[in-house]
Design a protein around this nucleic acid. Sequence first.
RNA 1: GCCGAGUUCGUCUAGUCGGCCUAGGACGCAAGGUUUUCAUCCUUGAAAUCAGGGGUUCGAAUCCCCUACUCGGUACCA
Length: 504
Amino acid sequence: MKPRVRFAPSPTGPLHIGGVRTALYNYLFAKQHGGTFILRIEDTDQTRFVEGAEAYIIESFQWLGLKFDEGVGIGGNFGPYKQSERKEIYKPYAEQLIANGWAYYAFDTPESLDTKRKEAESQKKTFQYDASTRSQMENSLTLPENEVQRRISSGEQFVIRFKYPENTDIPVHDLIRGNVIINSNLLDDKVLYKSDGMPTYHLANIVDDHLMEITHVIRGEEWLPSAPLHIMLYKAFGWDAPQFAHLPLLLKPDGNGKLSKRDGDRLGFPVFPLLWNDPKSGETSSGYRESGYLPEAVINMLALLGWNPGTEQEIFSLEELVNLFSLEKISKSGAKFSLDKAKWFNHEYLQVKTADQLYPLIENVLTTKGITSTKEYTIKVLELIKERLNFTNDFWEQSDYFFVAPKEYNAQDLKKRWKDGTGEKLRVIDRLLQQDSAFDKQAAHDRVMEHIKANEWNMGQVLNSLRIAIVGAAKGPELFTMIELIGTAEVHQRIETIIQKIEN
RNA sequence: GCCGAGUUCGUCUAGUCGGCCUAGGACGCAAGGUUUUCAUCCUUGAAAUCAGGGGUUCGAAUCCCCUACUCGGUACCA
């Protein structure tokens, strides 16, 4: 049977990079087995809904190049794929559970539960709504049948809770972690159906996974503790449960703990695929795309954060990942995100791109800087400085001198290279550069070198001072290649400018 | 607190059934080379007594037990 897997985010904000990895693993698993990759939006909590989050999620995956086969925005035979649009589906299932004795109505108010919890807390205990306490609460197990009906028909608020059997071991078979056994006495009677008429995650998730014929649930480790509930729910409905795989968490680079939005802001790397403007707080969070990452690099990096094929290969195309991926090789422990490694991956991917391919990604850099340049010229610059790029966003700081004359000169370099008489020497070189009517790189190079040697000038000093005049610092590509690109007229200007500024 | 999961260089990790592991690779770091510059690139190096302690075994990073620590969960959130 071909697997059917889903990625099921909540539209409560931008898609977290950990979520992207979960989606990626689902994608790889599905594609490897010729299966189906589904996007389902789990928006059962209306209070946490954030405008634009759903569109953000869809756009993120478009940028990353992970295509869903079914789901929100795509369609399919198992729709709708948004839980708020499936609202009517869930209630009969909750009622079915009540009829079978697997669930019950509970009328306890949030306030009364809160009081119970605080009470327990003051005695250093935890209140748990379970087999040991439900007989003391207001629910359809303690109240007479007619009273329950009366309360419901009079519009009193209620929830539906799952009724765990007492003292029963619930085995969870996890594809990554093996068997985990949990006793039902440790679990509390989870709310399945909320007083606002919406199911909770647990109910909606199980019903939808069943209805959508999901075969493998690949999700974050934070779900492992609620896996027993899900297993029991399948049992209560009499359905076959899908297979479970709980992924290790993505950790923050320093210290421990889950990677969060705050860490990105603090350490200077994106936690989200795309730039995000939060409509509620007004805060802006950076995105991988806007920070100059290539989607292939992000995918590659994420794939290796928690999974490894066991070989020494590090660079993988999506196709290779699809072929090599296996759930068995996923590690069990959390992985710390590393900015340095991310930078390295991006550098590697940048290098295999041609200047032509890179051009569209840096085009807007020039326009935002108010530079007008031909595509031809820009591509030549790109070819020259490509290898120095870690991110497409580095383009400007690596190449500004190809477009505008340096405004200031690196003081250290100047001190080291600019001596008395340097200006005069540069004027001589300038004349040598302009000798041919059409600049001939090789001829100019030979002429300059010859002159320097013949006059016993300090080669490093002269050439570097020329470089400073052109670039603003002792850095950049091969000197004569730069001069050819920038043009001797502009070089002449820059030589005169630096002499003006330094020697006057 | 309780429950669960995890624990190999600073980081990501390799490590099929215990011997080929005096623990391999990558990132980062250091040194050298290339570049008469810088970056790239290349070479070399430092870096884990395999969380700690007990076992089992001729032999354990690999099996068992205990301890410690970290993370996750413990909501009418997902």
